[in-house]
């Protein structure tokens, strides 16, 4: 992996982020009505002084290109604007909520990949076996279930039938002052249902994908070579085959990340998880555009970073790509 390649990828990622900023700017201006009123949202509608302040702040009386320049300049300085509903800077609002979202999304991603790939690999051993059939059916069901509905069903199940997992929020109020370990375990306890809900859809897809990918790899010549060496079935499956079969899985994992964030939006709303999804939901209901745009910016940034990491891990996993650009 050459440093120049890394730099190029980073630059490209930044370019994409710049694109998101321009898009945000355009969206505000494309919306019907006075941009100042749009930015102020429901709260500022009547207040002329506030509108004047916004116009000055965003340079709305200047030519459009200058306005764009001012906007980009603000974003570069970490100023995503002021939320007039929450009466806080957008950057602060998001800063407080991005952690829980990252936690949720990463847990769901890891959970779905680990479980899904494991199921897929086991299923691939017997392409016409019971588990293979289960994986196919499960994948089709997983694809068809609305994620927010799965969450609600789990809440009903775990709130009234098996009350072993908390169904709401991220922390218990009574443990707020406990030690770090206790609080971490408490968060993990709260994380179980939302992470599982979010993981469920993708788990099914990874199982199906890794089954197909494994079946293809298991038919290849180098698997026969491994068997001819006397390698055990487990080594053939998990060392020789999985390493190769993981390449398409990695690609999909990267592409899915954006969808995962979309899913997290719904899951956070269902489980009252205090992340960016809740923030997006609340700010959209209040038409708090600076906050919405800020969330869109940060969520896109997460996808860009995830794509970058996927690309790098792909290169680590496949020696044929190393040293090429």
């Amino acid at each position: 992996m050459t440093p120049s390649y890394l730099l190029r990828r980073l630059f490209y990622g930044l370019l994409l982020m710049l694109g998101v900023v321009v898009l945000n700017f355009l969206l505000i201006r494309l919306a019907p009505g006075d941009p100042a009123v749009v930015i102020a949202g429901e709260m500022g509608g009547a207040d002329e002084a506030l509108l004047a302040a916004i116009r000055a702040d965003y340079g709305l009386d200047k030519p459009v290109l200058t306005q764009l320049g001012i906007y980009i300049g603000n974003v570069l300085q970490g100023d995503l604007g002021q939320s007039f509903f929450f009466n806080q800077p957008v950057a602060t609002l998001i800063g407080d909520r991005i952690g829980p979202t990252i936690l949720l999304v990463l847990c769901a991603q890891v959970l779905s990949i680990l479980l899904g790939v494991f199921l897929g690999v086991i299923a691939a051993r017997k392409p016409n076996g019971v588990l293979s059939g289960f994986v196919s059916v499960f994948a089709t069901i997983g694809y068809a279930v609305p994620v927010f509905w799965t969450g609600i069903m789990l809440i009903i199940l775990f709130a009234s039938v098996f009350p072993i997992f908390p169904v709401e929020g991220m922390q218990s109020v009574r443990l707020r002052d406990a030690g770090f370990m206790i609080r971490a375990l408490d968060v993990a306890h709260h994380l179980v249902l939302p992470a599982f809900t979010l993981a469920l859809i993708y788990l099914a897809q990874y199982a199906r994908l890794s089954r197909a990918s494994m079946l293809e790899v298991l038919g290849s010549d180098y698997i026969r070579t491994a068997r001819a060496k006397g390698a055990s079935e487990r080594s053939v499956l998990f060392k020789h085959a999985l390493r190769n079969a993981s390449l398409p899985i990695l690609t999909v994992a990267g592409l899915q990340f954006g969808n995962l964030i979309s899913g997290a939006l719904l899951v956070e709303t269902v489980f009252n998880w205090p992340g960016m999804g809740r923030l997006a939901f609340d700010s959209i209901l209040r038409r708090d555009y600076p906050t919405i745009m800020g969330v869109l910016f940060f969520a896109s940034a997460m996808v860009v970073v995830a794509n970058l990491l996927t690309d790098l891990s792909y290169r680590l996993a496949d020696p044929r790509l190393r040293g090429k650009s």
Binding site: L27, L30, V38, I261, S262, L265, R287, V295, L296, S300
Partner: peptide
């Protein structure tokens, strides 16, 4: 593809 689909759609629907 960088824009999270649901979020982007929410923004569009709210704006228009």
């Amino acid at each position: 593809q960088v824009l999270p689909t649901l979020l982007f759609a929410m923004v569009l629907v709210t704006l228009f």
